[in-house]
Write a protein that binds this DNA or RNA. Sequence first.
DNA 1: CGAGCACTTGATCGCTTTCAATAGCTGTGG
DNA 2: CCACAGCTATTGAAAGCGATCAAGTGCTCG
Lengths: 247, 247
Amino acid sequence: MTPIFKIDHTNCGDCPIRHRAVCAHCDANELEELEGIKYYRSFEAGQTIIWSGDQMNFVGSVVSGIASLTQTMEDGRTQMVGLLLPSDFVGRPGRDSAPYDVQATTDLVMCCFRKKPFEELMSSTPHIAHRLLQMTLDELDAAREWMLVLGRKTAREKIASLLSIIARRDASIHQKGNSGPIVFDLPLTREAMADYLGLTLETVSRQISALKKDEVILLEGKRHVTIPDMGRLMEEAGDDTDGGFLV
Amino acid sequence: MTPIFKIDHTNCGDCPIRHRAVCAHCDANELEELEGIKYYRSFEAGQTIIWSGDQMNFVGSVVSGIASLTQTMEDGRTQMVGLLLPSDFVGRPGRDSAPYDVQATTDLVMCCFRKKPFEELMSSTPHIAHRLLQMTLDELDAAREWMLVLGRKTAREKIASLLSIIARRDASIHQKGNSGPIVFDLPLTREAMADYLGLTLETVSRQISALKKDEVILLEGKRHVTIPDMGRLMEEAGDDTDGGFLV
DNA sequence: CGAGCACTTGATCGCTTTCAATAGCTGTGG
DNA sequence: CCACAGCTATTGAAAGCGATCAAGTGCTCG
């Protein structure tokens, strides 16, 4: 379904995430500098990109595919703490070791920069630093919205919340209008959804079945989802139907 | 217990949060500029500083006291999504309306700047923008650590996690060595703790009683806590005893 | 065709919530 | 000075939701 992004192209002007990524506000000169130090890496679904505690010697943007940030307790309980979609930034300038695991949830292509040169570029080009601050603040908002989901919502509301977030981000990437049914493929396994939502995979499965029975969603196979009425889904998520802001 | 911070002083050099706040890396000139536009505001415990959705026309730092960020659902369920201690930054440059309520949990003093001049200062003085990025990244880490607490920990572990965070932040503010018992006053009601942890206040009360019975903590009155063995507490929190990083 | 994997569904268990009563403290007014 | 309201906190009993344990289904791939 997802078209494979050609790794060998080098022209930032053609880049599909150009307008949303950390380089969004760069001018032609800055872009040229970035172009000089960037390189692409691809990862297969399931591969771990960075282990928690590892030294991080690169940063980068997700070009295509989905990555996830997860924390794991000693006894194996794991919680996903971030879902990185195309254009999202990976890595932390100014810190050496990674605070959580970064995994490729699907096949993944990243546009990478070695950390040192990127940090230098950041201090010389305010556009990058400024954009990174905005993106970090957005991520902080998303993380806090997620805290409400984890702390206070029921299992059914959690599933509805996740579906509505995926639907919204998907719609915003594909630049669709927001009328009519929304159709997308779930990029996550039931287990990954459970790890995101603080549930077990059995509960995820049960609640998806329930939402399907109640016709809040339609399912074709296990992953292909149709949302006939986005307003209805957002009610189920416990969100205000209007005033929901696009992330 | 907490000494009242004198609101009428104007010298940033004497400021108790000088070395940790958004102005931490400013040089003498930058500090002087900030000093020109800053003003102090105090709030009483329980007062709402900013309502979700309100226009925000100022930003600032917590000088003394504790503020909290909370989200509320239509049916009244609330989740605290941030705990702001002295030196933490309030507000979001580049965004007009507040995404959550900000409340004074205790009596509070803030060092404020009108948003517009602050934003201008930010774009002209990289030290401030850089420090704000670092602080935002730290907050993002803290939010994600909290997602693990909310999503995967038991009630007992949640209480132990909260106590250990308060103990650590308290120790780092008062610059104490980390040997011997730790003593502090809980700055939160049982209800505020419940809102932070995604629990009910009854469960909070029960788990505190249980930790007390098991001598993980000692209680004098309702709020005065002694932690005889920090390692023990961190085990109860489900955290690795060593390698815990100071926030 | 059978192994392996993702997922579904059922039955039961247990933790946290819910509902409810009570204790302790502070401040107010007769 | 005591009675009482109002608040925070504790404790008990019962209910409910999601977890756990356990089969079983459907699909893909060798």
